[in-house]
Design a protein around this nucleic acid. Sequence first.
DNA 1: GAGTGGTCTAGACCACTGA
DNA 2: CAGTGGTCTAGACCACTCG
Lengths: 262, 262
Amino acid sequence: MQSGMPASATSSMLAPPAAAEAADSPAFSPLYQQIKTLMTRSLQQGEWRPGEAIPSEMDLAVRFKVSQGTVRKAIDAMAADNLLVRRQGKGTFVATHAEEKIQFRFLRLMPDAAELGGTTRRFIDCQRQRAPAELARALNLKPSDATIRVRRLLSFRGAPVVLDDIWLPAQLFKGLTAERLSNYRGPMYGLFETEFGVRMIRAEEKIRAVAADEASAALLGLAAGSPLLSVERLSMTYGDRPVELRRGLYSTAAHYYRNELS
Amino acid sequence: MQSGMPASATSSMLAPPAAAEAADSPAFSPLYQQIKTLMTRSLQQGEWRPGEAIPSEMDLAVRFKVSQGTVRKAIDAMAADNLLVRRQGKGTFVATHAEEKIQFRFLRLMPDAAELGGTTRRFIDCQRQRAPAELARALNLKPSDATIRVRRLLSFRGAPVVLDDIWLPAQLFKGLTAERLSNYRGPMYGLFETEFGVRMIRAEEKIRAVAADEASAALLGLAAGSPLLSVERLSMTYGDRPVELRRGLYSTAAHYYRNELS
DNA sequence: GAGTGGTCTAGACCACTGA
DNA sequence: CAGTGGTCTAGACCACTCG
Protein backbone atom coordinates (compact mmCIF):
# COMPACT_ATOMS: atom_id res chain seq x y z
CA MET A 1 0.00 0.00 0.00
CA GLN A 2 2.91 2.31 -0.71
CA SER A 3 2.16 5.80 -1.96
CA GLY A 4 4.30 7.23 -4.72
CA MET A 5 3.15 4.58 -7.13
CA PRO A 6 -0.52 5.01 -6.55
CA ALA A 7 -2.55 3.05 -9.06
CA SER A 8 0.07 0.48 -9.91
CA ALA A 9 -0.22 -1.62 -6.75
CA THR A 10 -1.63 -4.57 -8.59
CA SER A 11 -2.89 -7.34 -6.38
CA SER A 12 0.27 -7.39 -4.36
CA MET A 13 -1.53 -8.01 -1.13
CA LEU A 14 -4.86 -9.03 -2.50
CA ALA A 15 -6.38 -12.08 -4.06
CA PRO A 16 -7.99 -11.48 -7.46
CA PRO A 17 -11.23 -9.59 -6.87
CA ALA A 18 -13.87 -12.14 -7.83
CA ALA A 19 -14.13 -15.34 -9.82
CA ALA A 20 -10.75 -16.39 -11.13
CA GLU A 21 -10.14 -14.45 -14.29
CA ALA A 22 -8.78 -15.74 -17.52
CA ALA A 23 -5.02 -16.21 -17.23
CA ASP A 24 -4.26 -13.26 -19.50
CA SER A 25 -6.33 -10.83 -17.46
CA PRO A 26 -4.19 -8.32 -15.57
CA ALA A 27 -6.79 -8.18 -12.72
CA PHE A 28 -6.01 -4.60 -11.90
CA SER A 29 -7.44 -3.59 -8.58
CA PRO A 30 -7.45 0.04 -7.44
CA LEU A 31 -6.04 0.97 -4.06
CA TYR A 32 -9.39 1.87 -2.52
CA GLN A 33 -10.66 -1.54 -3.50
CA GLN A 34 -7.78 -3.18 -1.67
CA ILE A 35 -8.44 -1.01 1.37
CA LYS A 36 -12.06 -2.09 1.21
CA THR A 37 -10.98 -5.72 1.26
CA LEU A 38 -8.74 -5.16 4.25
CA MET A 39 -11.41 -3.28 6.14
CA THR A 40 -14.01 -5.94 5.37
CA ARG A 41 -11.61 -8.46 6.84
CA SER A 42 -11.41 -6.37 10.02
CA LEU A 43 -15.18 -6.48 10.23
CA GLN A 44 -15.31 -10.20 9.60
CA GLN A 45 -12.64 -10.96 12.18
CA GLY A 46 -14.40 -8.89 14.81
CA GLU A 47 -11.76 -6.19 15.18
CA TRP A 48 -14.60 -3.71 14.82
CA ARG A 49 -17.88 -4.93 16.23
CA PRO A 50 -21.45 -4.15 15.18
CA GLY A 51 -22.62 -0.80 16.48
CA GLU A 52 -19.12 0.40 17.33
CA ALA A 53 -17.26 3.25 15.68
CA ILE A 54 -14.32 2.42 13.44
CA PRO A 55 -11.18 4.61 13.49
CA SER A 56 -11.40 8.03 11.89
CA GLU A 57 -10.54 8.49 8.24
CA MET A 58 -7.29 10.16 9.20
CA ASP A 59 -6.24 7.28 11.44
CA LEU A 60 -7.07 4.76 8.76
CA ALA A 61 -5.15 6.79 6.18
CA VAL A 62 -2.06 6.60 8.41
CA ARG A 63 -2.58 2.90 9.12
CA PHE A 64 -2.90 1.99 5.45
CA LYS A 65 -0.37 4.58 4.29
CA VAL A 66 -2.71 6.19 1.78
CA SER A 67 -4.38 9.57 1.55
CA GLN A 68 -7.58 10.37 3.37
CA GLY A 69 -9.38 10.58 0.03
CA THR A 70 -8.58 6.98 -0.77
CA VAL A 71 -9.81 5.75 2.60
CA ARG A 72 -12.89 7.85 2.06
CA LYS A 73 -13.63 6.16 -1.21
CA ALA A 74 -13.30 2.73 0.38
CA ILE A 75 -15.64 3.72 3.19
CA ASP A 76 -18.11 5.20 0.72
CA ALA A 77 -18.27 1.90 -1.10
CA MET A 78 -18.76 -0.03 2.13
CA ALA A 79 -21.48 2.36 3.25
CA ALA A 80 -23.21 1.79 -0.08
CA ASP A 81 -23.10 -1.94 0.70
CA ASN A 82 -24.70 -1.29 4.09
CA LEU A 83 -21.62 -2.56 5.90
CA LEU A 84 -20.89 0.80 7.51
CA VAL A 85 -22.95 3.81 8.47
CA ARG A 86 -21.53 7.33 8.33
CA ARG A 87 -22.68 9.95 10.76
CA GLN A 88 -21.35 13.44 10.19
CA GLY A 89 -19.61 14.90 13.17
CA LYS A 90 -19.66 11.62 15.06
CA GLY A 91 -17.80 9.02 13.07
CA THR A 92 -18.29 5.91 10.99
CA PHE A 93 -20.02 2.94 12.60
CA VAL A 94 -20.34 -0.74 11.89
CA ALA A 95 -23.86 -1.44 10.69
CA THR A 96 -25.97 -3.59 12.95
CA HIS A 97 -29.32 -5.31 12.87
CA ALA A 98 -29.59 -5.00 16.65
CA GLU A 99 -30.56 -1.37 16.94
CA GLU A 100 -32.42 -0.87 13.74
CA LYS A 101 -35.39 1.41 14.17
CA ILE A 102 -36.86 -0.18 11.13
CA GLN A 103 -36.98 -3.90 11.51
CA PHE A 104 -38.15 -3.79 7.92
CA ARG A 105 -34.80 -3.79 6.23
CA PHE A 106 -35.31 -7.42 5.30
CA LEU A 107 -39.03 -7.87 5.91
CA ARG A 108 -40.63 -5.87 3.13
CA LEU A 109 -44.22 -6.33 4.17
CA MET A 110 -46.26 -3.17 4.63
CA PRO A 111 -49.78 -2.66 5.95
CA ASP A 112 -52.45 -1.37 3.55
CA ALA A 113 -53.64 1.05 6.21
CA ALA A 114 -51.66 2.65 8.98
CA GLU A 115 -50.80 0.01 11.53
CA LEU A 116 -51.95 0.63 15.09
CA GLY A 117 -50.83 -2.28 17.26
CA GLY A 118 -47.36 -3.77 17.48
CA THR A 119 -45.65 -6.91 16.27
CA THR A 120 -45.81 -10.14 18.22
CA ARG A 121 -43.79 -13.26 17.57
CA ARG A 122 -44.64 -16.80 18.48
CA PHE A 123 -42.04 -19.53 18.14
CA ILE A 124 -43.79 -22.74 17.29
CA ASP A 125 -40.87 -25.01 16.91
CA CYS A 126 -37.08 -25.25 17.05
CA GLN A 127 -35.59 -28.59 16.13
CA ARG A 128 -32.31 -30.14 15.11
CA GLN A 129 -32.40 -32.27 11.99
CA ARG A 130 -30.16 -33.56 9.24
CA ALA A 131 -30.04 -31.36 6.18
CA PRO A 132 -32.20 -32.62 3.33
CA ALA A 133 -30.33 -32.77 0.04
CA GLU A 134 -31.76 -29.60 -1.43
CA LEU A 135 -31.13 -27.61 1.73
CA ALA A 136 -27.58 -28.91 2.02
CA ARG A 137 -26.93 -27.71 -1.49
CA ALA A 138 -28.34 -24.25 -0.86
CA LEU A 139 -26.33 -23.76 2.35
CA ASN A 140 -23.19 -25.45 1.09
CA LEU A 141 -23.36 -28.21 3.71
CA LYS A 142 -22.53 -31.88 3.64
CA PRO A 143 -25.67 -34.03 3.68
CA SER A 144 -24.55 -35.39 7.02
CA ASP A 145 -24.40 -31.94 8.64
CA ALA A 146 -27.02 -31.00 11.19
CA THR A 147 -29.32 -28.02 10.79
CA ILE A 148 -31.69 -26.19 13.08
CA ARG A 149 -35.19 -25.61 11.87
CA VAL A 150 -37.21 -22.80 13.41
CA ARG A 151 -40.85 -22.22 12.77
CA ARG A 152 -42.46 -19.01 13.88
CA LEU A 153 -45.54 -16.92 13.41
CA LEU A 154 -45.56 -13.13 13.17
CA SER A 155 -48.69 -11.20 14.03
CA PHE A 156 -49.50 -7.54 13.50
CA ARG A 157 -52.18 -6.03 15.71
CA GLY A 158 -52.85 -9.51 16.96
CA ALA A 159 -53.64 -10.91 13.53
CA PRO A 160 -51.27 -13.60 12.18
CA VAL A 161 -49.67 -12.54 8.91
CA VAL A 162 -46.33 -14.30 8.40
CA LEU A 163 -45.45 -17.94 8.88
CA ASP A 164 -41.72 -18.53 8.62
CA ASP A 165 -39.74 -21.72 8.31
CA ILE A 166 -36.08 -21.04 8.93
CA TRP A 167 -33.14 -23.38 8.43
CA LEU A 168 -29.72 -22.68 9.90
CA PRO A 169 -26.45 -24.63 9.98
CA ALA A 170 -26.33 -26.13 13.49
CA GLN A 171 -22.59 -25.67 13.65
CA LEU A 172 -22.86 -21.88 13.51
CA PHE A 173 -25.82 -21.64 15.86
CA LYS A 174 -24.92 -24.03 18.67
CA GLY A 175 -27.32 -23.69 21.56
CA LEU A 176 -30.08 -21.86 19.74
CA THR A 177 -33.39 -22.69 21.39
CA ALA A 178 -36.98 -21.52 21.11
CA GLU A 179 -36.61 -20.04 24.57
CA ARG A 180 -33.62 -17.89 23.66
CA LEU A 181 -35.48 -16.74 20.59
CA SER A 182 -38.54 -15.85 22.61
CA ASN A 183 -36.62 -13.97 25.28
CA TYR A 184 -34.66 -11.83 22.87
CA ARG A 185 -35.99 -8.34 22.29
CA GLY A 186 -35.51 -7.04 18.79
CA PRO A 187 -35.02 -8.46 15.34
CA MET A 188 -33.88 -12.05 14.96
CA TYR A 189 -30.83 -11.00 12.94
CA GLY A 190 -29.82 -8.89 15.91
CA LEU A 191 -29.69 -11.99 18.07
CA PHE A 192 -27.71 -13.86 15.42
CA GLU A 193 -25.24 -11.00 15.41
CA THR A 194 -24.74 -10.54 19.14
CA GLU A 195 -25.08 -14.14 20.30
CA PHE A 196 -23.58 -16.09 17.44
CA GLY A 197 -21.39 -13.61 15.62
CA VAL A 198 -23.18 -14.20 12.34
CA ARG A 199 -23.97 -11.02 10.46
CA MET A 200 -26.40 -11.02 7.55
CA ILE A 201 -25.15 -8.80 4.76
CA ARG A 202 -27.32 -9.55 1.79
CA ALA A 203 -30.14 -11.83 0.72
CA GLU A 204 -31.90 -13.05 -2.38
CA GLU A 205 -35.60 -13.73 -2.43
CA LYS A 206 -37.72 -15.81 -4.79
CA ILE A 207 -41.36 -14.88 -4.61
CA ARG A 208 -44.28 -16.97 -5.75
CA ALA A 209 -48.03 -17.19 -5.26
CA VAL A 210 -49.20 -20.44 -3.71
CA ALA A 211 -52.36 -21.92 -2.22
CA ALA A 212 -52.34 -22.38 1.53
CA ASP A 213 -52.19 -25.96 2.75
CA GLU A 214 -54.31 -27.07 5.70
CA ALA A 215 -51.70 -26.56 8.39
CA SER A 216 -50.48 -23.17 7.22
CA ALA A 217 -54.00 -21.92 6.68
CA ALA A 218 -54.96 -22.90 10.20
CA LEU A 219 -51.99 -21.06 11.70
CA LEU A 220 -52.69 -17.96 9.66
CA GLY A 221 -56.40 -18.06 10.37
CA LEU A 222 -57.36 -18.52 6.74
CA ALA A 223 -59.29 -21.02 4.67
CA ALA A 224 -57.25 -23.80 3.10
CA GLY A 225 -56.44 -22.91 -0.50
CA SER A 226 -56.25 -19.17 0.16
CA PRO A 227 -53.62 -17.49 -1.99
CA LEU A 228 -50.40 -16.72 -0.11
CA LEU A 229 -47.12 -15.14 -0.99
CA SER A 230 -44.31 -17.66 -0.75
CA VAL A 231 -41.03 -15.88 -0.08
CA GLU A 232 -37.93 -18.01 -0.21
CA ARG A 233 -34.94 -16.17 1.15
CA LEU A 234 -31.28 -17.14 1.04
CA SER A 235 -29.21 -14.91 3.33
CA MET A 236 -25.50 -14.38 2.98
CA THR A 237 -22.82 -13.30 5.41
CA TYR A 238 -19.35 -11.93 4.62
CA GLY A 239 -17.85 -13.34 1.46
CA ASP A 240 -21.31 -14.14 0.11
CA ARG A 241 -21.40 -17.28 2.20
CA PRO A 242 -25.01 -18.53 2.53
CA VAL A 243 -25.95 -19.11 6.18
CA GLU A 244 -29.72 -19.11 6.28
CA LEU A 245 -32.54 -20.42 4.16
CA ARG A 246 -36.00 -19.23 5.01
CA ARG A 247 -39.38 -19.82 3.55
CA GLY A 248 -42.08 -17.39 4.53
CA LEU A 249 -45.78 -17.57 3.81
CA TYR A 250 -47.26 -14.07 3.82
CA SER A 251 -50.95 -13.37 4.09
CA THR A 252 -51.54 -10.41 1.78
CA ALA A 253 -55.14 -9.69 2.65
CA ALA A 254 -54.23 -6.52 4.55
CA HIS A 255 -50.53 -6.20 3.67
CA TYR A 256 -48.38 -6.08 0.60
CA TYR A 257 -44.76 -6.78 -0.27
CA ARG A 258 -43.14 -3.51 -1.19
CA ASN A 259 -40.40 -3.26 -3.76
CA GLU A 260 -38.63 -0.39 -5.38
CA LEU A 261 -37.31 -0.56 -8.95
CA SER A 262 -34.68 1.70 -10.40
CA MET B 1 -21.46 28.54 -9.06
CA GLN B 2 -18.41 30.69 -8.45
CA SER B 3 -15.26 29.02 -7.26
CA GLY B 4 -13.25 30.65 -4.52
CA MET B 5 -16.09 30.26 -2.09
CA PRO B 6 -16.72 26.61 -2.73
CA ALA B 7 -19.17 25.19 -0.24
CA SER B 8 -20.92 28.40 0.60
CA ALA B 9 -23.05 28.61 -2.52
CA THR B 10 -26.25 28.16 -0.61
CA SER B 11 -29.28 27.70 -2.84
CA SER B 12 -28.41 30.72 -4.89
CA MET B 13 -29.56 29.17 -8.13
CA LEU B 14 -31.46 26.25 -6.76
CA ALA B 15 -34.83 25.63 -5.21
CA PRO B 16 -34.68 23.90 -1.82
CA PRO B 17 -33.78 20.27 -2.44
CA ALA B 18 -36.94 18.42 -1.47
CA ALA B 19 -40.09 19.09 0.50
CA ALA B 20 -40.19 22.63 1.77
CA GLU B 21 -38.18 22.68 4.95
CA ALA B 22 -39.08 24.36 8.17
CA ALA B 23 -38.47 28.08 7.85
CA ASP B 24 -35.48 28.01 10.16
CA SER B 25 -33.68 25.34 8.15
CA PRO B 26 -30.69 26.70 6.26
CA ALA B 27 -31.28 24.16 3.44
CA PHE B 28 -27.61 23.92 2.61
CA SER B 29 -27.03 22.24 -0.71
CA PRO B 30 -23.54 21.27 -1.86
CA LEU B 31 -22.27 22.35 -5.25
CA TYR B 32 -22.30 18.89 -6.79
CA GLN B 33 -25.94 18.57 -5.80
CA GLN B 34 -26.75 21.79 -7.64
CA ILE B 35 -24.82 20.56 -10.68
CA LYS B 36 -26.82 17.36 -10.53
CA THR B 37 -30.05 19.35 -10.57
CA LEU B 38 -28.90 21.38 -13.57
CA MET B 39 -27.82 18.28 -15.45
CA THR B 40 -31.06 16.49 -14.68
CA ARG B 41 -32.86 19.48 -16.15
CA SER B 42 -30.79 19.11 -19.31
CA LEU B 43 -31.90 15.50 -19.53
CA GLN B 44 -35.51 16.37 -18.91
CA GLN B 45 -35.53 19.13 -21.50
CA GLY B 46 -34.00 16.88 -24.11
CA GLU B 47 -30.70 18.71 -24.47
CA TRP B 48 -29.06 15.30 -24.11
CA ARG B 49 -31.12 12.46 -25.50
CA PRO B 50 -31.34 8.81 -24.48
CA GLY B 51 -28.41 6.78 -25.76
CA GLU B 52 -26.33 9.84 -26.63
CA ALA B 53 -23.08 10.88 -24.98
CA ILE B 54 -23.10 13.93 -22.75
CA PRO B 55 -20.16 16.38 -22.82
CA SER B 56 -16.90 15.27 -21.21
CA GLU B 57 -16.24 15.96 -17.56
CA MET B 58 -13.75 18.65 -18.53
CA ASP B 59 -16.25 20.42 -20.78
CA LEU B 60 -18.90 20.31 -18.09
CA ALA B 61 -16.44 21.62 -15.51
CA VAL B 62 -15.80 24.63 -17.75
CA ARG B 63 -19.49 25.13 -18.44
CA PHE B 64 -20.46 25.08 -14.79
CA LYS B 65 -17.28 26.83 -13.62
CA VAL B 66 -16.36 24.14 -11.11
CA SER B 67 -13.55 21.63 -10.89
CA GLN B 68 -13.62 18.33 -12.70
CA GLY B 69 -13.91 16.55 -9.36
CA THR B 70 -17.17 18.28 -8.56
CA VAL B 71 -18.68 17.42 -11.92
CA ARG B 72 -17.47 13.89 -11.37
CA LYS B 73 -19.30 13.63 -8.10
CA ALA B 74 -22.52 14.87 -9.69
CA ILE B 75 -22.19 12.33 -12.50
CA ASP B 76 -21.41 9.57 -10.02
CA ALA B 77 -24.65 10.31 -8.20
CA MET B 78 -26.64 10.34 -11.42
CA ALA B 79 -25.06 7.08 -12.55
CA ALA B 80 -26.08 5.55 -9.20
CA ASP B 81 -29.63 6.67 -10.00
CA ASN B 82 -29.44 4.95 -13.39
CA LEU B 83 -29.84 8.25 -15.19
CA LEU B 84 -26.41 8.05 -16.81
CA VAL B 85 -24.06 5.25 -17.77
CA ARG B 86 -20.30 5.71 -17.64
CA ARG B 87 -18.06 3.88 -20.08
CA GLN B 88 -14.37 4.24 -19.51
CA GLY B 89 -12.47 5.52 -22.50
CA LYS B 90 -15.66 6.35 -24.38
CA GLY B 91 -17.67 8.83 -22.41
CA THR B 92 -20.80 9.18 -20.31
CA PHE B 93 -24.12 8.30 -21.91
CA VAL B 94 -27.75 8.97 -21.19
CA ALA B 95 -29.36 5.77 -19.98
CA THR B 96 -32.01 4.29 -22.23
CA HIS B 97 -34.59 1.55 -22.15
CA ALA B 98 -34.39 1.20 -25.92
CA GLU B 99 -31.15 -0.71 -26.22
CA GLU B 100 -31.20 -2.66 -23.00
CA LYS B 101 -29.81 -6.12 -23.44
CA ILE B 102 -31.72 -7.16 -20.41
CA GLN B 103 -35.35 -6.26 -20.76
CA PHE B 104 -35.55 -7.39 -17.17
CA ARG B 105 -34.62 -4.16 -15.50
CA PHE B 106 -38.24 -3.65 -14.54
CA LEU B 107 -39.71 -7.12 -15.12
CA ARG B 108 -38.19 -9.18 -12.34
CA LEU B 109 -39.65 -12.51 -13.35
CA MET B 110 -37.18 -15.36 -13.79
CA PRO B 111 -37.68 -18.88 -15.10
CA ASP B 112 -37.14 -21.79 -12.69
CA ALA B 113 -35.17 -23.62 -15.35
CA ALA B 114 -33.11 -22.18 -18.16
CA GLU B 115 -35.45 -20.65 -20.70
CA LEU B 116 -35.20 -21.93 -24.25
CA GLY B 117 -37.67 -20.05 -26.42
CA GLY B 118 -38.13 -16.32 -26.61
CA THR B 119 -40.68 -13.80 -25.42
CA THR B 120 -43.84 -13.08 -27.36
CA ARG B 121 -46.27 -10.25 -26.70
CA ARG B 122 -49.90 -10.09 -27.60
CA PHE B 123 -51.80 -6.84 -27.26
CA ILE B 124 -55.36 -7.62 -26.39
CA ASP B 125 -56.72 -4.19 -26.03
CA CYS B 126 -55.92 -0.48 -26.19
CA GLN B 127 -58.73 1.88 -25.27
CA ARG B 128 -59.32 5.45 -24.23
CA GLN B 129 -61.38 5.96 -21.12
CA ARG B 130 -61.99 8.46 -18.36
CA ALA B 131 -59.83 8.01 -15.32
CA PRO B 132 -61.61 6.27 -12.46
CA ALA B 133 -61.24 8.13 -9.17
CA GLU B 134 -58.56 5.88 -7.71
CA LEU B 135 -56.50 5.94 -10.89
CA ALA B 136 -56.79 9.71 -11.18
CA ARG B 137 -55.43 10.01 -7.69
CA ALA B 138 -52.48 7.71 -8.33
CA LEU B 139 -51.48 9.49 -11.54
CA ASN B 140 -52.24 12.99 -10.29
CA LEU B 141 -54.95 13.57 -12.88
CA LYS B 142 -58.25 15.35 -12.81
CA PRO B 143 -61.19 12.93 -12.84
CA SER B 144 -62.21 14.35 -16.19
CA ASP B 145 -58.86 13.57 -17.81
CA ALA B 146 -58.68 10.77 -20.35
CA THR B 147 -56.45 7.74 -19.95
CA ILE B 148 -55.34 4.96 -22.23
CA ARG B 149 -55.74 1.44 -21.01
CA VAL B 150 -53.58 -1.28 -22.56
CA ARG B 151 -54.04 -4.93 -21.89
CA ARG B 152 -51.40 -7.37 -23.00
CA LEU B 153 -50.25 -10.92 -22.52
CA LEU B 154 -46.60 -11.97 -22.29
CA SER B 155 -45.62 -15.52 -23.14
CA PHE B 156 -42.33 -17.30 -22.64
CA ARG B 157 -41.62 -20.31 -24.81
CA GLY B 158 -45.17 -19.98 -26.05
CA ALA B 159 -46.71 -20.34 -22.60
CA PRO B 160 -48.64 -17.32 -21.27
CA VAL B 161 -47.15 -16.04 -18.01
CA VAL B 162 -47.91 -12.36 -17.51
CA LEU B 163 -51.18 -10.51 -17.98
CA ASP B 164 -50.71 -6.77 -17.74
CA ASP B 165 -53.23 -3.98 -17.44
CA ILE B 166 -51.57 -0.64 -18.09
CA TRP B 167 -53.01 2.82 -17.58
CA LEU B 168 -51.42 5.92 -19.09
CA PRO B 169 -52.40 9.59 -19.17
CA ALA B 170 -53.82 10.09 -22.68
CA GLN B 171 -52.37 13.55 -22.86
CA LEU B 172 -48.80 12.26 -22.74
CA PHE B 173 -49.37 9.34 -25.07
CA LYS B 174 -51.44 10.83 -27.88
CA GLY B 175 -51.79 8.42 -30.75
CA LEU B 176 -50.77 5.27 -28.92
CA THR B 177 -52.48 2.32 -30.55
CA ALA B 178 -52.33 -1.45 -30.24
CA GLU B 179 -50.84 -1.52 -33.71
CA ARG B 180 -47.95 0.77 -32.82
CA LEU B 181 -47.33 -1.31 -29.74
CA SER B 182 -47.33 -4.51 -31.75
CA ASN B 183 -45.01 -3.21 -34.44
CA TYR B 184 -42.39 -1.89 -32.06
CA ARG B 185 -39.39 -4.12 -31.48
CA GLY B 186 -37.98 -3.98 -28.00
CA PRO B 187 -39.20 -3.10 -24.54
CA MET B 188 -42.35 -1.01 -24.16
CA TYR B 189 -40.50 1.63 -22.17
CA GLY B 190 -38.18 2.00 -25.15
CA LEU B 191 -41.14 2.98 -27.29
CA PHE B 192 -42.40 5.40 -24.66
CA GLU B 193 -38.97 6.99 -24.67
CA THR B 194 -38.40 7.33 -28.41
CA GLU B 195 -41.97 7.98 -29.55
CA PHE B 196 -43.42 9.96 -26.67
CA GLY B 197 -40.41 11.41 -24.89
CA VAL B 198 -41.47 9.86 -21.60
CA ARG B 199 -38.62 8.23 -19.72
CA MET B 200 -39.28 5.90 -16.80
CA ILE B 201 -36.79 6.50 -14.03
CA ARG B 202 -38.09 4.66 -11.04
CA ALA B 203 -41.04 2.56 -9.95
CA GLU B 204 -42.68 1.21 -6.84
CA GLU B 205 -44.35 -2.16 -6.75
CA LYS B 206 -46.90 -3.61 -4.38
CA ILE B 207 -47.03 -7.37 -4.54
CA ARG B 208 -49.82 -9.60 -3.36
CA ALA B 209 -51.07 -13.13 -3.83
CA VAL B 210 -54.53 -13.36 -5.35
CA ALA B 211 -56.84 -16.00 -6.80
CA ALA B 212 -57.29 -15.89 -10.57
CA ASP B 213 -60.71 -14.75 -11.77
CA GLU B 214 -62.37 -16.52 -14.71
CA ALA B 215 -61.20 -14.15 -17.41
CA SER B 216 -57.58 -13.90 -16.27
CA ALA B 217 -57.36 -17.62 -15.70
CA ALA B 218 -58.58 -18.30 -19.22
CA LEU B 219 -56.01 -15.94 -20.75
CA LEU B 220 -53.20 -17.47 -18.71
CA GLY B 221 -54.33 -21.02 -19.39
CA LEU B 222 -55.00 -21.80 -15.75
CA ALA B 223 -57.93 -22.95 -13.67
CA ALA B 224 -60.03 -20.22 -12.09
CA GLY B 225 -58.93 -19.67 -8.51
CA SER B 226 -55.29 -20.52 -9.20
CA PRO B 227 -52.92 -18.44 -7.06
CA LEU B 228 -51.32 -15.57 -8.98
CA LEU B 229 -48.87 -12.84 -8.13
CA SER B 230 -50.54 -9.46 -8.36
CA VAL B 231 -47.93 -6.81 -9.06
CA GLU B 232 -49.13 -3.22 -8.95
CA ARG B 233 -46.53 -0.85 -10.33
CA LEU B 234 -46.47 2.92 -10.24
CA SER B 235 -43.78 4.29 -12.55
CA MET B 236 -42.25 7.71 -12.23
CA THR B 237 -40.48 9.98 -14.69
CA TYR B 238 -38.23 12.96 -13.90
CA GLY B 239 -39.16 14.79 -10.74
CA ASP B 240 -40.85 11.69 -9.38
CA ARG B 241 -43.91 12.44 -11.43
CA PRO B 242 -46.10 9.33 -11.77
CA VAL B 243 -46.94 8.56 -15.40
CA GLU B 244 -47.97 4.93 -15.48
CA LEU B 245 -49.98 2.60 -13.33
CA ARG B 246 -49.80 -1.05 -14.16
CA ARG B 247 -51.28 -4.14 -12.69
CA GLY B 248 -49.68 -7.41 -13.66
CA LEU B 249 -50.88 -10.91 -12.91
CA TYR B 250 -47.93 -13.30 -12.94
CA SER B 251 -48.28 -17.03 -13.18
CA THR B 252 -45.58 -18.41 -10.88
CA ALA B 253 -45.89 -22.08 -11.75
CA ALA B 254 -42.61 -22.10 -13.65
CA HIS B 255 -41.27 -18.62 -12.80
CA TYR B 256 -40.52 -16.55 -9.75
CA TYR B 257 -40.19 -12.89 -8.89
CA ARG B 258 -36.60 -12.23 -8.00
CA ASN B 259 -35.59 -9.65 -5.45
CA GLU B 260 -32.33 -8.70 -3.86
CA LEU B 261 -32.10 -7.39 -0.31
CA SER B 262 -29.20 -5.48 1.14
C1' DG C 1 -1.67 9.43 -30.04
C1' DA C 2 -5.57 12.05 -28.51
C1' DG C 3 -9.47 11.90 -25.71
C1' DT C 4 -12.26 9.75 -22.37
C1' DG C 5 -13.24 8.24 -17.67
C1' DG C 6 -10.70 6.31 -13.26
C1' DT C 7 -7.49 6.74 -9.42
C1' DC C 8 -4.65 9.12 -6.12
C1' DT C 9 -2.73 12.92 -3.64
C1' DA C 10 -2.37 17.18 -0.69
C1' DG C 11 -4.35 20.82 1.26
C1' DA C 12 -8.06 24.02 2.38
C1' DC C 13 -12.27 25.01 4.33
C1' DC C 14 -17.27 23.85 5.81
C1' DA C 15 -21.02 21.47 8.60
C1' DC C 16 -22.09 18.86 12.41
C1' DT C 17 -21.57 16.74 17.12
C1' DG C 18 -20.59 16.67 21.85
C1' DA C 19 -17.84 17.76 25.86
C1' DC D 1 -13.56 24.10 21.55
C1' DA D 2 -11.54 19.86 19.20
C1' DG D 3 -12.69 16.09 16.39
C1' DT D 4 -15.49 13.98 13.03
C1' DG D 5 -17.20 13.45 8.35
C1' DG D 6 -18.39 16.40 3.93
C1' DT D 7 -17.10 19.40 0.08
C1' DC D 8 -14.06 21.51 -3.22
C1' DT D 9 -9.89 22.33 -5.68
C1' DA D 10 -5.70 21.53 -8.63
C1' DG D 11 -2.71 18.65 -10.58
C1' DA D 12 -0.61 14.23 -11.72
C1' DC D 13 -0.79 9.89 -13.66
C1' DC D 14 -3.23 5.42 -15.14
C1' DA D 15 -6.53 2.43 -17.92
C1' DC D 16 -9.32 2.13 -21.74
C1' DT D 17 -11.14 3.06 -26.58
C1' DC D 18 -10.72 4.24 -31.18
C1' DG D 19 -9.00 6.18 -35.25
